[in-house]
């Protein structure tokens, strides 16, 4: 027997309400996280002033003068800058291969490899780089290992993202270029890639956000040194997320405050990058 219309309408109302409630519940944590990071972060940064917080080294045991996150911030810039540069240089040709030879076994294999690596636990990347670069090549924690680990973490994502951007370029562009006698290399890098530049740039931006925020790949690679500016690639160094992880576990108030201030700086960078990506394209694909 068919159910009455009234029962179905009631079910509809209740069902939709539950869906909306659950959806709101799933985004509430983020709003609270943002609120907490802003409140505690501002409190920590205001104590010393923004400029000094961003430039001075930390004094995690000194309540009078807690210092700032200068060395960690510079370390993060160095690591993410290197990672982005190298990852782009490898991800772009990989994505061209995926997009240009669509349907071939090599394209599908490369895409499957990249998709698998995207979701790979980043701690494993960190351990692998530790085994090769820290344990065998350099013989101690070093910034180079951190940069390599971050590169490997963001590389597959950037390759997938760029290949999707390239796939969206109309075939007509290629046909026009070929008919004018352009080589394939020229067609792809002078016409197709520029046409897909927004999507590729978004991939680079999201890669940058990830490189700036990842902690696990740095745990066993860069070591964590914050007293002075360590820029040498073969020596220990620090980064903002790693500093947050290490300082929040210290039983000292100044150290924990520094962690919250660093978290606010990190979140500001992430939000800025995300907004920039959003300006470039309507749909940002995180996965």
């Amino acid at each position: 027997m068919p159910r009455s219309l009234r029962a179905r309408k009631l079910e509809n109302a209740v069902g939709l309400a539950v869906i909306v409630a659950l959806a709101i519940a799933s985004v509430l944590p983020l709003i609270h996280i943002l609120y907490m990071v802003i409140v505690r972060g501002v409190e920590a940064i205001a104590r010393i002033g923004l400029y000094r917080f961003l430039t001075e080294p930390p004094h995690p045991f000194d309540p009078q003068n807690p210092g700032g996150i200068g060395p960690a911030l510079v370390g993060s810039l160095e690591l993410s800058g290197l990672a982005i540069a190298v990852a782009t240089l490898i991800a772009l040709p990989a994505s061209v291969l995926i997009a240009e030879f669509r349907g071939s076994r090599i394209s599908r294999g490369t895409l499957l490899l990249a998709l698998t690596l995207v979701e790979f636990p980043t701690i494993l990347v960190g351990l692998t780089v530790y085994a090769v670069l820290v344990d065998h090549v350099v013989g101690g924690y070093n910034m180079l290992a951190g940069a390599v680990a971050l590169t490997l973490v963001i590389l597959p994502y950037m390759a997938v993202q760029a290949s999707e951007a390239l796939r969206g370029v109309p075939e007509g562009v290629r046909e026009a270029a070929y008919s004018l006698g352009a080589t394939r290399l020229k067609t792809v890098y002078a016409l197709i890639a520029p046409a897909a530049r927004r999507g590729i740039l978004v991939g680079i931006l999201i890669g940058l956000a990830r490189a700036a925020g990842e902690t696990a790949p740095l745990l066993f690679t860069v070591g964590g040194a914050y007293e002075g500016y360590h820029l040498c690639l073969y020596k220990v160094g620090g980064a903002v997320p790693l500093m947050i992880y290490q300082f929040i576990q210290m039983p000292y108030k100044p150290a924990q405050d520094l962690a919250w201030g660093a978290a606010l700086v990190l979140m500001t960078i992430i939000v800025g990058v995300m907004l920039l990506a959003r300006l470039l394209v309507k749909e940002v694909k995180i996965l």
């Binding site: 999201i206 925020g213 990842e214 992430i270 995180i286």
Partner: peptide, 22 residues
């Protein structure tokens, strides 16, 4: 959808901080 994108892009250490403190 910007909010959910941001949720996915928020570093895990920030979630950890919130988990620890709140």
């Amino acid at each position: 959808s910007l909010l959910t994108d941001l949720m996915a892009a928020t570093p895990t250490i920030i979630y950890g901080l919130w988990g620890l403190a709140f």
